[in-house]
Design a protein around this nucleic acid. Sequence first.
RNA 1: GGUCCCUUCGUCUAGCGGUUAGGAUAUCUGGUUUUCAUCCAGAAGAUCACGGGUUCGAAUCCCGUAGGGACCGCCA
Length: 442
Amino acid sequence: MSTITRFAPSPTGLLHLGNIRTALINWLYARTNNGKFILRIDDTDLERSKEEFTSKIKYDLEWLGIDYDETFNQSSRFDVYKERFNQLVDIGRIYPCYETPEELDRKRKLQMAAGGKPVYDRSSLKLTEKQKTDFKSEGRKPHWRFLMNSERVQWDDILKDKVDIDLLSLSDPVVYREDGVPLYTFSSVVDDIDFNVTNVIRGDDHTSNTAVQIELINSLDQNKITFAHHALLTASSGDKLSKRDNVISIESFRDKHIEPLAILSLLATIGTSNSIELKDSLQQIINEFRIKTISTSPGRIEIDLLNSLNKKLIQKFDYNEIEDRLKKIDNRIDRNFWETTRGNLDIVEDIKGWGDIVFNSNPIEPVDKEFIKIALDLMPDEPWNDETWSNWTSKIKDKTGKKGKDLFLPLREAFTGMSHGPEMKKLIQLLGRDKILERVKI
RNA sequence: GGUCCCUUCGUCUAGCGGUUAGGAUAUCUGGUUUUCAUCCAGAAGAUCACGGGUUCGAAUCCCGUAGGGACCGCCA
């Protein structure tokens, strides 16, 4: 049977580094096993789910180059969930519950206060038929729980090895809400079965869900799913990654002009035993992927790593690859301009700043006018080449006696307005004699 | 309170009973570059969380302690 994995975000917020890492791992697992990768939109909670987020999720994945073979929304399968639900009812594994959310909340608090575990006490299971009909005639609608009947559940986890969970410390899951909406624990299982998902790879936060879900799967079908739970990433502060944490959303990185491959390189290496380095391509990431290299201990994301990977990536870009982008930033940027300035860019869009310096003629007033005047007097006629700068500066040096930093820095500042930047021997060729004369005010 | 998991250079990690505890990244130094970045070379950086046990021998196996994470919802 061929491998099928899935990524199942709920469209209630933006994708962040943590989510997309899970997506990437599932995608890589499918791709390296010649399998299929499904994008499932978990939108059963109609109030919280927003179409806007669904399209953003899809756009983020596309932007990163993570393609999927199939996609569907859970909201399109309500009738299937109902069927499966009835199947469970028939075998007596479903029971109606009439507690209100407030009641349940109070119960949990009481249990905690008494030093016990906040687990549902199954009191609705003990309801008599009369009590149930009374509730019904009062117009009270039940929510429905799945009756778990194993004490423990164990499985071989690809990443955590043998996992053995005590089901008695977990509540019977609610599978249908009072308003008739199926819940994740259930709908996810139904979909995983129906779509023949072979490997569920998700964060460690789902480990106890898995125990409950295996119980559920076994009552519907025979479990054929292999699970894997990876450690969660934490923010560099050590805090949990949150969906509300927009600073690490994929969208925010895109807005900041971080390159997809830099993000993917980071996510493919952080929290794994792979070297933290820039990958040449998505293909390289696929070739090098080994699920076992993923750590089971929670690791933190250092955003600085992403920035430096991005910078390294930019240095490798050939002009042809990004010509269109550069032209959009400033259509006067050509190959020579790119090759001269790229060493000084953190993000591609930074080149705009150098465009402003080279193409615009904002006047610059030098500090040492005397010195700059001498320099301008010695400025050679065009055409200029790579030798021009050193010939010119040695003449200035002979005339003024200045050397080293005292010689070069004032010239750089007078001609560019900046104290650092690309090599001057290249940069002056971009500027040209007229621009320099026009700009420098002495 | 319960359940599950984790703990090795600043950071991400290798390690599976005998290693000078390895790598990556960050840092520092030198070279290259007028400068910065890149690149090259090198250095420094870890009492393997702590305590005990098993063993000729423990980062590695066992127990305990501490710290961290996740979950315990009519969210996903």
